[in-house]
Nucleic acid binder design. Sequence first.
DNA 1: CGGCGAGTTTGCGCAAGGACAAAGATGCAT
DNA 2: ATGCATCTTTGTCCTTGCGCAAACTCGCCG
Lengths: 236, 236
Amino acid sequence: MTPQRIDRSVLKELDIFATMADEDLDAVLQSAHTRRLATGVSVFNQGDPAAEFFALLHGRLKVTQTAPDGQQILVRHVHPGDIYGIAKAIRRSDYPGTATAVVESLTMVWPINQWDFLVARCPALAVNALATVGARLQEAHTRIRELGTEGVERRVAHALLRLVHQAGRKTDEGILIDFPITRLDIAEMTGATLHTVSRLLSAWEGRGLVSSSRKKIVVCNPHGLVALADGRAEQD
Amino acid sequence: MTPQRIDRSVLKELDIFATMADEDLDAVLQSAHTRRLATGVSVFNQGDPAAEFFALLHGRLKVTQTAPDGQQILVRHVHPGDIYGIAKAIRRSDYPGTATAVVESLTMVWPINQWDFLVARCPALAVNALATVGARLQEAHTRIRELGTEGVERRVAHALLRLVHQAGRKTDEGILIDFPITRLDIAEMTGATLHTVSRLLSAWEGRGLVSSSRKKIVVCNPHGLVALADGRAEQD
DNA sequence: CGGCGAGTTTGCGCAAGGACAAAGATGCAT
DNA sequence: ATGCATCTTTGTCCTTGCGCAAACTCGCCG
């Protein structure tokens, strides 16, 4: 499938471009192209020279980071409308993580040198990017606090609620996390082992809080999960 | 002591203003004033409406964040030359944490409404702030990785090395962390208890890695500490 | 349609480090 | 000078959740 024509209106969906004038949007479109991503394919790898930056149009990505000793964490998921891979904006010359499609996805791509050009032309871009990165920083601090002060059960509950917030879709059994996610993914998000996550989900399933199967999680009782996350013991 | 006259040259020391033209610097100075902070005094408190933003000239601050359940973490230290409290830049109307002077300090202060004004006048400000926040985000991810995958000993070793990097001063016994810091502070930086931190420092002191006393830590053998942080067992 | 690989479940034992407790140092304040 | 608040050390016990091991299930690919 050949890269398709993208319309200005698509860009306006992206927070980062939302405040830009039409002619600036056209300039942004000029230098962009799109790329299809099959499930499991990586957009960039940790350590690669940062040659491009991106915005996700459809699908989902996960961003992981691996330590020298091989230990891996899941940094965040990328959802439609998010920009990502903006290493240049934070003055890195390489990507600090690896971005991988967890479902078939479609992304916009810009050559990295366009960043400075676009920012010069439209300073609001830097301001918007600052807000985006700031929001990520706050979420990171929240995770640090959880990792430092809460037990595994509460951390996993928080992570699940965050996923519900980011990618929840109502169904008749409850709220579905609307992309494939494994026990290992959740373990890497929460600093647990996949074994512990599996045990927790089994226990919760028994209590009717969630309903899960292979790569799929439905939260049946969000209220109960919030109680768990807040550390209030569940009482039936 | 009355607020003293600040010179342009002072601003140029701050990363965030480093690239600005002289007349812009003067505009920045116009709206600024300075404030002395006695040890233990807070500059702003978590949840306060964000009315000002700041840059530290002398001294040290610590930024803490407290969860609803009272659990606290130490988010970071603020060093001379850092800007902080820029809630507005990341579109928050309140401060997400509390900043407290750990030694007598001197800070610059701007009314928050100056932020938009200054950014409009000098877009480089947003670009520089983006780089600063980006660097903090990367550090936060590193901490998340450590918290999720490493044991307490390695985490404390990493935290200590980071402190050495940020505020190390050579002395003849080794590298001194150049501001008062308690076991509890380190515990709140690493997700440990002050008891465990105390035990670790005692053990390390026995091995000649560090030398510590009340609110004071000297790293005697940085190389050995790096070995610990990397998870390579120490062999004498 | 059968096999294989990725993902999941579950059991068991153990170790890291937290909880609790109490005593000891240090230095500031009056 | 002395007393108190803050910070630190150390001991003992006990829980959390990880390590290891093994079986099981699902769905896809040939």
